[in-house]
Structures are given as C-alpha cells and as structure tokens.
C-alpha cells in the first residue's frame, strides 16, 4: 500500500470533481421527479419517498464507484499502467488504492440524496435507520468498485463511456430503481436475483421495513466482489499491451 499514491489519487479526484457532480446530479433529479409523482404513497409499510431516496442514493454511489474504475481504461490508454509496472508498486496495492478511492467517491452521492430526500421530499425516518441504510448502501458499493476495475481493464478508452452508461441503466433497472423490486415482473425479478444491484438494493432498503438484511444479500455481495476482484487482478497482471 502506498499512502502517497492514495493521496495523489484523491487529489486527482478532487481536480476532476466535475464528473463527481454528474454522478450526484442524475439521482437527485430522478429522486425529485419520482418523489413528486409517488412520494406520498406507501409500499409495504414504508414511505415511498424514503424507498426512492435509498434507491437513488444507491444508484448514485454505484455509478460513482463504477465510473471511477472506468477511468483506468483512460489511464491504460495513456500508458500510465505500463509506467507503474516499472515501479515497485504491486498490482494488489494498485487495485486496493482504486477500491478505496471508489468507496470514498460512493459517499457524496449518498449524502446528497439523503439531504435532498429530507429537505425536498420530507423523508422522516429514525436516525438509526438513516445510519443503517447509509452504511449498508456504502458497503454495498464494494462489488461495484470491483466491477469498475473490471470495466477499466476490459474497455478501451473510447468505449468506456457507453459501457459504463449501459451498466448504470441495467443496474438501475435490476436494483429496483426504475421499478420497485416488489413490483418487478416475475422473469425480470428472476434475472435480477443474479445481479449484485438487486441484492444491495434489497439489503439497503430492509431497515425501512424493519426487516433484517437477507443473508442471501450478504453472500451475493461478497461473491460478486470476489469474482470481480479476481478478474481485475488477473487482468492487471497480464495487461501488457502497448496502447
């Protein structure tokens, strides 16, 4: 682990904060839109406004985590990764730094959507529930941080934008952001159950229903993190192509 590298990456993210603002804009707009339409209804004992707020926060944190990993494609295109391979920095330290920064970037979208939810949609839930949904959502960004690494390694610099865009849409659909998980058609739900987005969504929203986190969700998040992490690490080790 290199503290200087971590600090440098955080500095770069601060400089490129415009992309971070975009990762917050989309969920906030959707939250305001859907919140005005359905905000006063309830769903299975929870306020729809709170349900939407948690979902949108998740969408924002997922997008930020995947989007950051995607920038690896651009760094590879610039030959930066080849340069790093000529230093003692290990692949593991590199990947770990990327995951830590992804998780840091996943925080602001969560905070912003929660503030908008509370102020604009009048979401009122107990403090502990706020904390629980926030924490679960944040930890739930882990498989997406790992997925971001995979995208960063598989995509080309000019294809990374459309690929991440498509991923956001699919994740949003299956994470219960366009359609609440409870209202999904049977087939879609069956597909959704194989995605990390679905399970992170279910876990993050469970405190709203005073329900425990489903164990399947814990396993799904761990398994997807592991799968993506291993693929990313393998790609790093074999990534020697000259850009």
């Amino acid at each position: 682990m290199s503290i200087t590298y971590l600090r440098t990456e955080i500095l770069r993210m601060y400089r490129n904060r415009r992309s971070l603002i975009f990762s917050m804009l989309m969920p906030v707009i959707l939250l305001l839109l859907f919140g005005r339409l359905y905000g006063t209804e309830t769903l299975g004992g929870a306020a729809v406004s709170a349900y939407l707020m948690v979902s949108m926060g998740l969408f924002g944190s997922m997008s930020a985590a995947i989007g950051y990993g995607g920038t690896i494609a651009v760094e590879r295109g610039a030959g930066w990764n080849r340069q790093l391979r000529l230093t003692p920095l290990t692949p593991r330290a590199y990947g770990l730094t990327k995951v830590i920064v992804s998780l840091l970037l996943a925080l602001p979208p969560l905070l912003v959507t929660y503030v908008v939810g509370a102020l604009a949609l009048g979401v009122r839930i107990p403090a502990l529930t706020w904390l629980a949904v926030g924490l679960i959502s944040w930890v739930g960004a882990l498989p997406f941080a790992a997925l971001g690494l995979v995208v960063g390694y598989l995509a080309k610099p000019d294809s990374v934008q459309p690929i991440t865009g498509l991923l956001f849409m699919l994740l949003a659909a299956f994470g219960g952001i366009w359609v609440p998980a409870e209202a999904m058609p049977d087939l879609m739900r069956r597909v959704a159950e194989w995605t990390p987005a679905y399970w992170v969504g279910q876990a993050a929203r469970s405190p709203l229903f005073h329900a425990p986190i489903p164990m399947t969700a814990v396993w799904a998040v761990l398994a997807w993190t592991l799968v993506f992490g291993v693929i990313a690490l393998r790609r790093f080790q074999s990534d020697t192509a000259r850009a």
Binding site: T8, L11, R12, R15, N16, E75, A78, G79, W80, R82, Q83, L86, P88, R242, A243
Partner: peptide, 16 residues
C-alpha cells in the same frame, strides 16, 4: 530500484 526506463508510450497522467 535497479532499473529506470523510458518507454515509447506517453505514460504520464495529464492532470498531475
């Protein structure tokens, strides 16, 4: 640290 190299590809980050 026994080797220092200058590759043909750019290898630098423009934002630093």
């Amino acid at each position: 640290g026994a080797v220092g190299a200058m590759l043909q590809s750019n290898g630098l980050l423009p934002d630093l």
